[in-house]
């Protein structure tokens, strides 16, 4: 219950289908929801496989390495608390260990121009206690 309370403080309201993801994130790691029958990954986690219609789930622990699929630099502070944050990079990250899914993430410590489609990134857990989904650049763009 402590975990649920912590997540609610952060504005997150998981269900039994998504809770393992958030528990792992708070503990400083990433996991992905995978169909135990056909092996297809799905995001967000859910109790039903859209590929084979089975409901058995396996949680795949990820090493955090991935590639930027698309990105945007948020420059306008749409809400008061974001006015101090802009500009920040939002990216869709494809994960080496979980093909077929993307996480919506921030890319930390990056300069403009470094964040690019195809850039290699790795999960960063410095803000794990706040359940942030963060990555940092790990190499050069090769796309």
């Amino acid at each position: 219950m402590e975990t649920m309370e912590r997540l609610a403080q952060l504005g997150l309201y998981p269900t039994k289908d998504t809770l393992p993801f958030w528990e792992a994130l708070l503990a400083g790691s990433l996991v992905a929801c995978q169909c135990a029958n056909c092996g297809r990954f799905r995001q967000p986690p859910s109790g039903f496989c859209p590929g084979c219609q089975h409901s058995a789930v396996r949680w795949q622990r990820l090493d955090g390495a991935g590639t930027i699929y698309s990105f945007t630099w948020a420059r306008h502070g749409f809400t008061p608390d974001l006015r101090d944050r802009v500009p920040y990079a939002i990216a869709l990250v494809e994960l080496d260990d979980a093909p077929g899914i993307r996480l919506i993430a921030n890319i930390l410590d990056a300069e403009e121009g470094q964040v690019a489609i195809g850039a290699k990134v790795v999960a960063d857990h410095r803000n794990a206690a706040d359940a942030r989904i963060d990555f940092v650049l790990s190499g050069t763009a090769d796309a």
Binding site: L12, P44, S70, T72, I117
Partner: peptide, 28 residues
């Protein structure tokens, strides 16, 4: 909609605005 566990995945990256979401699609 804070009752939606799916929408939770927008929040940890401060993805709050349609302009940002369509920015991701346009960039691709």
């Amino acid at each position: 909609n804070h009752a939606s566990p799916e929408d939770d995945y927008l929040r940890p990256a401060d993805l709050v605005a349609p302009a940002q979401m369509f920015g991701l699609i346009a960039q691709r």
